[in-house]
Design a protein around this nucleic acid. Structure first.
Lengths: 220, 220
DNA sequence: AGAGATACATACATGCATGTATGTTTCAAG
DNA sequence: CTTGAAACATACATGCATGTATGTATCTCT
């Protein structure tokens, strides 16, 4: 075997990432060797070591690959619902649930992050990134809540940060349990109901059937 | 070294479990070898293999060791609040939070189960037990909710199972995030507030400062 | 068109984790 | 008091995962 064109090289890189996502999801991060990943990709360890420093570098790349579309979707929601923080919150939790249920890549990565990966020093890079994301996400939700309170969408005196932490935990917890056993409940439905339930408890008045102004249908 | 008395043997077994809890919590389950555990316990792998079949048997024993006191605490709450399902729910989430914050063993085990352990086939025994626990726990919470609805403590028409799933996820999610970074928030306070917030959203009317009839002070 | 760099595959050396087999005391039962 | 077994420690064999070094054929640039 020998040198490929740049496009082909990018394709093999993708193959490696796909294979890693598969095998990590099936056997867990720690228990999978680079040999298994290479084999599952139809390559050898040489290819893996060429494209990635080691297993944890691969993991970081995997995380990056699934982070971008999620952030784009969030940005789109931000842009479309500038003046309605409550609707933004509702749309975002629904959007995450939708992605997890319908996009295998997002679902697999969530499964890996929550269930197939030990949060220890070796994962430090990925872990720091994850914790960083989480903090950023939390700040974002907190500010949504703060804005909603300011606009009178939620009860005055509500602790925005505590409300944000709890809502975030609620969604993550539902995700964790659903990934453990997807047959137990309808993830999208429960996430939507729980979100609205939580917001209602904070004094929100929601139109029952809808989650704020309808966003345009998006093709998948 | 040679044969010890039965009590001494039980003591070394405990030493091994303590060491395993330590090292698993520090380095993750997959990355720790039985050699490290034995060394941390001041023993050799021979001792570990004498008392346990392998690493996953050890993990199961660890889980068992921390499950019992929690279940006892739950049973006590059940006994003391027979006629007040809503108070039982509030006491139990508070009790779990209290144990996690103040009892190192419970906290370490939660950390291992949620953050330091890959949920894969090799952990099948422990994992099945964990999932089983979770289902049993969920059924328990569901029936508490159902009872609360029957007694008029919650809004009629509430979906008991969905409410239970979400509350469970909420607490687990808070636990997950708090263990990831305990400096972020006051776990006990947020759990208590979030629980009450959730129940309020379901139509509960709670006396603000207290969580049902006072349980007797318990020594630690 | 030649040369160097690219994109891998192959080969090699090393180390560690596991499981088992065997040794060695000491306890405990008869 | 003897004997078998308990409660470990030690020794051994095996396999796998890792990282690197090297080979090699092809692309790409000039």
């Amino acid at each position: 075997m020998a040198r490929k064109t740049k496009d082909e090289a990018l394709a093999t890189r993708s193959q490696i990432l796909d294979a890693a996502e598969r095998v990590f999801g099936e056997r867990g991060v720690a228990r999978t060797s680079l040999h298994e990943i290479a084999e599952s990709a139809g390559l050898t360890r040489g290819a893996v070591y060429w494209h990635f420093k080691d297993k944890y570098d691969l993991l970081s790349a995997l995380w990056e690959r699934c982070r971008l579309p999620l952030e784009a979707a969030f940005a789109e929601i931000d842009a479309q619902l500038v003046d309605d923080p409550l609707a933004r919150i509702r749309q975002k939790t629904r959007g995450v649930a939708r992605s997890i249920v319908h996009d295998p890549r997002t679902r697999n990565m969530m499964g890996i992050a929550l269930l197939r990966c030990e949060m220890v020093d070796e994962i430090a890079a990925s872990r720091a990134r994850l914790v960083g994301e989480r903090d950023a996400c939390l700040d974002k939700i907190s500010s949504e809540f703060a804005a909603a309170i300011l606009q009178g969408q939620l009860r005055k005196g509500t602790d925005a940060r505590a409300a944000a932490i709890s809502l975030h935990a609620l969604i993550d917890g539902l995700c964790y349990h659903w990934l453990l056993d997807p047959s137990q409940f309808d993830f999208e439905a429960v996430v939507a109901a729980a979100t609205d339930q939580w917001l209602t408890g904070l004094g929100a008045v929601l139109s029952p059937g809808k989650a704020g102004p309808r966003r345009p249908a998006r093709r998948r």
